[in-house]
């Protein structure tokens, strides 16, 4: 299977109390379990079933994903920061892996 690649867009610095946008895009087949391969066998379900954003240890955004989410899932959401910190993204894979990535945001 292809490597799990992450692309993210997070501002390096934000003003205190300012609403800003966070975007992430990852590579994942998001096999829904309803498709058949060339060998005629059903391709088992393999999706990211949960996405979380944790800011300074506190979950600020979470989403349960189901089989209708497309290949290479993209998500964008807005946040507001009162103090500088690290935002951590967690993608929970059906195969048990949790893909983790984080970025520091400076509040000025």
């Amino acid at each position: 299977m292809a490597e799990f690649r992450i692309r993210k867009s997070v501002p390096e610095t934000v003003r205190k109390g300012e609403v800003f946008e966070i975007k992430t895009l990852v590579t994942h087949p998001m096999d829904n379990g309803f498709m058949f391969g060339r060998d005629g066998k059903r391709i088992p379900r393999h999706i990211i079933h949960r996405f979380e954003a944790i800011y300074n240890g506190k979950t600020v955004f979470g989403a349960d994903w189901h089989v209708a989410v497309s290949t290479n899932p993209y998500i964008s959401f807005h946040a507001l920061a009162e103090e500088s910190g690290t935002i951590e993204f967690r993608w929970h894979d059906d195969n048990g892996t949790v893909h983790v990535d984080s970025v520091y945001i400076q509040v000025i």
Partner: peptide, 10 residues
């Protein structure tokens, strides 16, 4: 940002 082909370029 969104173009999935850019992953291949990376």
């Amino acid at each position: 940002f969104l173009n999935p082909g850019r992953f291949a370029v990376d």
